[in-house]
Computed example of a mutant assay.
Amino acid sequence: MTDAIRVATGAHLTYPHAGGFHADGERLVVVRWDADRSATGFVSVPWREPGDADVRELCAVPAQARQEGTVWFDVARDAERLAGTWDGVLHIMDLADRTAAPEMLYRAPAGRALQGLVSISPAGDRVLVSQEAPGEYTLLEVDVGTGRIRELQTREWWANHAHYCPADPAWIGYSHEGPTKSVPDRVWARHAVELPEGQCVLRQPEGVCFGHERWAHHAVGAVVVAYGVSPNGPRGLYWASPDDPAGRLLSRGDRYWHCDISRDGRRAVVDTSGPADRPGKGWENADGISDILLVDLTDGSTLPLARTRATRHPAHPHPIFTPDGSAVLFNDLAPDGTLSITRIDLPDT
């Protein structure tokens, strides 16, 4: 295990396939909590600095959103712009203007609801959001400059986790969500020219349960977890892409849970559903423990980085790489229930 540095206390990261970095990658937007585990607002912190240094208040989270539970958001990789949904509205916010407030970009019509996970394009000019109605899940793309709405896909099954592929945002990944043991086609992609109707891009072997895909910065494809609850194997971390729907095993592991991939594509990071050094798979003998493992994608070997605890959202570790690949950040749950964001500096390779 490596020395841990606390970056922010009483706060959590956004979802792993989204982003929170801004100011040329030097600052990080996070969600702050209060004592009763309600989200209270967005703040920006310098992730290289320890101990809540230079915290910038961005905006409060409205009461309705606080009651609904976890609040997610996404920050554009190459623009000072944040997108998020709360209170049935898709919001956009200018992070370069420290006096700016969130502005409404789109409101769901009556009888429909917006999912909490959104994705903003690297340039910050488009936002993906999923809209739900009974038996209908529609992926919308909203033009930030004009407010124009495009309906990209509608599915009768639970479609979510949509996000732009950072390597080529013309590609959009999304998931067929649901019980992992009964959904045989989790990983989907859409391209306006090459796959305009969308298609499953990972053929799942019988008894292998995939999820928590994260599309990559260095190539059109995604890292995907084969969960420990899979009846069959091999379990672990896989690579999936439209060019190779058979998939490719990257690293074996019986407890992998969430994942991220470095921007250069050389390393991955995973958290686990239980101690990585304890016998068992999935949540067997887990005791609420989660380990953070660095994965070398040349040979699939792992290096333990940290150990934390995990309960319900947002107290999942959700480890991510910093933009320069020098460190990993994760949500760190202390035994007393305090949730913090912790940094682990990585060894050079």
Score class of each variant (00 low, 15 high):
residue 257 W to V: 09
residue 259 C to P: 05
residue 131 Q to K: 13
residue 249 L to M: 13
residue 153 Q to I: 15
residue 135 G to R: 01
residue 194 E to V: 14
residue 26 E to V: 00
residue 86 W to Y: 13
residue 337 G to L: 13
residue 178 G to C: 07
residue 182 S to R: 15
residue 271 D to A: 04
residue 158 W to Y: 13
residue 250 L to I: 08
residue 123 A to S: 09
residue 193 V to R: 15
residue 97 D to C: 10
residue 335 P to T: 07
residue 238 Y to L: 10
residue 127 V to K: 03
residue 305 L to A: 02
residue 268 A to K: 00
residue 88 G to L: 11
residue 155 R to W: 07
residue 266 R to C: 04
residue 308 T to C: 12
residue 137 Y to H: 12
residue 71 V to M: 09
residue 144 V to R: 05
residue 137 Y to G: 09
residue 299 D to V: 12
residue 67 Q to K: 13
residue 291 D to R: 09
residue 325 G to A: 09
residue 223 V to T: 14
residue 281 K to P: 03
residue 271 D to N: 07
residue 143 D to I: 07
residue 83 A to N: 04
residue 171 W to D: 01
residue 316 H to C: 11
residue 273 S to Q: 13
residue 233 G to L: 07
residue 103 E to H: 14
residue 41 G to K: 11
residue 313 H to Q: 09
residue 152 L to A: 07
residue 146 T to K: 14
residue 99 T to P: 08
residue 115 Q to H: 14
residue 158 W to I: 15
residue 172 I to A: 08
residue 145 G to W: 09
residue 338 T to C: 08
residue 151 E to G: 13
residue 237 L to V: 05
residue 289 I to E: 11
residue 180 T to P: 07
residue 129 V to C: 04
residue 48 R to S: 06
residue 129 V to A: 04
residue 279 P to W: 04
residue 282 G to N: 06
residue 6 R to F: 11
residue 132 E to F: 15
residue 63 A to F: 14
residue 207 G to R: 10
residue 132 E to D: 15
residue 224 V to C: 01
residue 168 D to N: 14
residue 65 A to Y: 06
residue 286 A to W: 03
residue 33 W to A: 15
residue 183 V to L: 01
residue 204 Q to Y: 05
residue 48 R to L: 11
residue 110 A to C: 07
residue 326 S to M: 06
residue 275 P to T: 12
residue 310 A to Q: 09
residue 32 R to E: 15
residue 276 A to R: 03
residue 187 V to K: 01
residue 6 R to V: 14
residue 80 E to T: 07
residue 12 H to S: 06
residue 106 Y to I: 01
residue 148 R to W: 05
residue 238 Y to N: 05
residue 36 D to C: 11
residue 293 L to K: 02
residue 100 A to C: 10
residue 267 R to I: 05
residue 345 D to N: 13
residue 169 P to C: 03
residue 162 A to F: 10
residue 328 V to F: 00
residue 202 L to C: 08
residue 216 A to D: 03
residue 244 D to Y: 05
residue 30 V to Q: 00
residue 25 G to D: 05
residue 59 C to F: 15
residue 103 E to K: 14
residue 293 L to E: 04
residue 144 V to Y: 08
residue 9 T to E: 12
residue 217 H to K: 08
residue 230 S to I: 05
residue 43 V to W: 07
residue 150 R to V: 09
residue 195 L to C: 01
residue 153 Q to V: 15
residue 112 R to V: 10
residue 308 T to H: 06
residue 3 D to K: 14
residue 297 L to P: 00
residue 16 P to F: 14
residue 249 L to P: 02
residue 202 L to I: 12
residue 14 T to I: 10
residue 205 P to R: 04
residue 208 V to N: 10
residue 92 I to L: 15
residue 147 G to P: 01
residue 232 N to E: 14
residue 217 H to P: 06
residue 180 T to Y: 15
residue 17 H to G: 01
residue 89 V to Q: 07
residue 170 A to Q: 12
residue 234 P to F: 00
residue 247 G to F: 03
residue 118 V to R: 00
residue 233 G to F: 02
residue 22 H to Y: 15
residue 345 D to F: 09
residue 17 H to A: 06
residue 164 Y to V: 00
residue 199 Q to D: 13
residue 294 L to V: 09
residue 221 G to Y: 02
residue 139 L to P: 09
residue 255 R to K: 08
residue 60 A to V: 12
residue 14 T to Q: 06
residue 297 L to I: 06
residue 253 G to W: 01
residue 28 L to Y: 03
residue 218 H to E: 11
residue 111 G to H: 06
residue 193 V to A: 13
residue 50 P to C: 04
residue 20 G to Y: 03
residue 81 R to C: 09
residue 58 L to F: 09
